[in-house]
Design a protein around this nucleic acid. Structure first.
Lengths: 268, 268
DNA sequence: TTCACGAACTTGTCCAAACAAGCTAGCCTT
DNA sequence: AAGGCTAGCTTGTTTGGACAAGTTCGTGAA
């Protein structure tokens, strides 16, 4: 018996085939929507129809359309046919997390440069974010990212000590840190939490991004964790105004985004 | 026979009971997570265990945890037990769409004031966003929203002509337009698409929000549509820096947010 | 003509079962 | 003691069926 011991190494090779049937069905439907075969505002075929067409059970069709719903492409109400609500697709997690992977997917020329890198002890706030003890060793990195040669983003990242050696092995002009860490030590950035707001450019910001002091920057602060929930990095990324826009599609019963209160005391 | 003709008007009464079993199970698990019963980073019981405990099939348990996964509370990998990755919950769609409903849920005193309101013809861009013909009648509204008495957001909204009469019936100091439209004509804002970036305060912005000209504002542009996919409004909301932060939780295989390219030509 | 009713359709919820695929921990060999 | 292997656990995928609940639209009555 058995017979299947092939290679237990890892099943997550890039470009690997997606075995699941419903993923394929979702892809076909997505393609049809993006091609305009199903216009925005129009109805999708019923689940039963699709089940027959693809020769699967209704459950499998439901998984496929659930995927599209999560991407914000289709909406549904009980009793009524599903409708198409959008055309562009939300891309993968990598886009939010890796500047390079996003830019490359969009076909832009991207570059990055480490300006500063040093080990130090974690302060109280960093310790909380990274689930460390205050004073534990962390690696602090300042990186400037450019698109088409123009500096567009300044990245201040703090890595947890346990991943620091791998980060230090990365060449200073590496484009995609995410990818480098995956290839080097197999680290996968699996979960992320992101805070987005607007701030004015400080002295360092304005000098490196080549903008006037006090000019608006879009700030994305994020914590990234592994599959096991272990925090890897805490980062403060600042984009030049106009260089990047975040986009969210949501529906009445599926909403990933939350507004949070700032500190009113700091405002007056 | 039958007997259920109560009111066919709408089935979405606030506070209505959620019949679905899996919603209740999700609520119980969510509660346990937020109470710290399952710590961040720890494992959830297995699906089989939960199925036994709640006396339902595994499929139902899977629906419940899928809900939690969509909220960003738990993560999972095939073969390994599900883990808790976060504690705060993403709230409902209303939060992203309705300033008032968000603020009220957070317990803040919120107010709003219409500063300007007039009908006019839609320009080309508006026509596209609202699925109208250029020149079709729209209602343009300028609203100032305040939190705890402080002006924090300036809202420039364009409503499609067909909803304009209902909007005009709303009193100028109404707190929640979303709620007013629901109560008046039963309109439900079902889907939304949002673009988030940073801009400098213009002349009008700076005067009304009481900030210096050129100071950073967080901008949220959005299109909202009905259940049927019909666009209702197109809005440009600008928040004082520091007053509001957007927050997103995502995972490697569920990501609602997309970064978009700005126009590099406008930057130099 | 208008409105209420109901039949047909469609999505939502739930179950029970089976197998595939990945993970973990403990056992056993080296 | 270190390391490889396997058994058992756990999540992922899929099927087929059943009923509930909401929508749509045509028919028939007022």
């Amino acid at each position: 018996m058995d017979g299947a011991l092939v290679d237990t190494g890892n099943g997550a090779e890039p470009g690997g085939r997606a075995a699941a049937r419903y993923v394929g069905i979702a892809a076909e439907l997505r393609e049809a929507i993006m091609c305009g075969e199903y216009a925005v505002g129009s109805q999708l075929p019923s689940e039963t129809t699709l089940a027959t067409r693809f020769d699967v059970s209704r459950g499998t069709v439901r998984q496929a359309v659930a995927l599209l719903a999560a991407e914000g492409l289709v909406g549904s109400r009980q009793g009524a046919r599903r409708i198409v609500v959008g055309r562009e697709r939300s891309q993968s997690f990598a886009e939010l997390n890796s500047f390079a992977q996003w830019a490359q997917a969009m076909g832009y020329r991207v570059s990055g440069q480490v300006l500063e890198q040093r080990r130090r002890g974690a302060d109280a706030a960093e310790a909380v974010r990274l689930a460390l003890q205050p004073g534990d060793q962390v690696l602090s990195v300042l990186r400037l990212r450019s698109l088409e040669g123009e500096p567009v983003m300044l990245e201040r990242t703090v890595y947890a000590g346990w991943i620091a050696p791998a980060v230090e092995r990365i060449p200073p002009d590496c484009e995609s840190i995410t990818q480098a860490l995956y290839e080097d030590v197999g680290l996968v950035f699996a979960y992320g939490e992101h805070l987005i707001d607007a701030v004015s450019a400080g002295v360092e910001d304005s000098r490196l991004l080549v903008v006037r002091r006090g000019s608006p920057l879009l700030r994305q602060r994020r914590v990234t964790t592994t599959h096991e929930g272990r925090p890897v990095e805490w980062s403060d990324d600042r984009y030049r105004a106009g260089s990047v826009t975040f986009s969210i599609r949501n529906s009445v019963d599926a909403n990933p985004l939350v507004r949070q209160m700032g500190d009113l005391r700091l405002m007056s």
